[in-house]
Design a protein around this nucleic acid. Sequence first.
DNA 1: TCTGTAATTAAGTAATCACTTAATCAAGGG
DNA 2: CCCTTGATTAAGTGATTACTTAATTACAGA
Lengths: 151, 151
Amino acid sequence: MKSTIAALKAIADGTRLRVVKLLLQYNYCVGALARRLDVTEAAISQHLKVLREAGLLVGEKRGHFMHYDVDRNALRALGAELEKLAAIERQVCKPEEEDCEQQRRGRCRAHEAGGKCPEEVRFACHGPNADEKENGRNGHCECQEPQKGIR
Amino acid sequence: MKSTIAALKAIADGTRLRVVKLLLQYNYCVGALARRLDVTEAAISQHLKVLREAGLLVGEKRGHFMHYDVDRNALRALGAELEKLAAIERQVCKPEEEDCEQQRRGRCRAHEAGGKCPEEVRFACHGPNADEKENGRNGHCECQEPQKGIR
DNA sequence: TCTGTAATTAAGTAATCACTTAATCAAGGG
DNA sequence: CCCTTGATTAAGTGATTACTTAATTACAGA
């Protein structure tokens, strides 16, 4: 997860994205990359280091020259991770499963449509001292799904 | 493509990634998010702005409260884009299809295993003045696929 | 071993960024 | 209309970053 962020940071840069796209097509050496992208060799070298340390590139020395290759699996995995993220399911309230004291609160409509209120949700939506302020507006928010037809 | 970079930059941050993960599960209001992630509301608000402007979040006002939702399609599309990137095919040399003057060069082994040398590759690998320096090492690199068995 | 070149690293700089606090805007409730 | 509270914005700060030039390391040919 920390490596995911590093990899995302690595490709979230215009120049480095161009580097990756080019290296996917051509097995350029560093100097060729620099010429092709019109960037100094030092700059390219530093970008390559970032991409390499993020696990997106692997280098190979051939004679005088250093050639980098994109780790396509790593790149694919990164994409898959984002798609997997997009598939994270919503946690909805199921008050019948848990004793949810938020049901008592006037402005908390999180449960009227039927939903649970796990401890972490209760805490996050109403704060650590939610119990102390009965029926007030303080600390409340309609923190769950949009309530169709209500309000 | 520019929006891709903006979206990548947006999620390539630890706090914002946590925001996205949380909003995928719970429809928290801004204050709830801040409490849950133990970040000031101002900071969260700024992160939400970044994510919103990157097209990853959509906001909805409900009474007093502002609730943000992850645009799952945008997130999925971003992941798909990375996977598509990983599928970019390598350009290999096909000298029989093009008149490739690099074949004459001693140190350029790009073609010995059979490969084309399109103008852009030629330029990138050997520089704009490649023709002027016949048979020299200058400006050359073995810029294509690793040559098995050669050298 | 000496020389020329590819690549990396060092050092410095301007810009960007994540965060802070304080001020401001917005939306009810009394 | 005022007051409270949620949310955003403004302004400032320290850290990070992308780039530059210069120095250094690594490699191979003569």
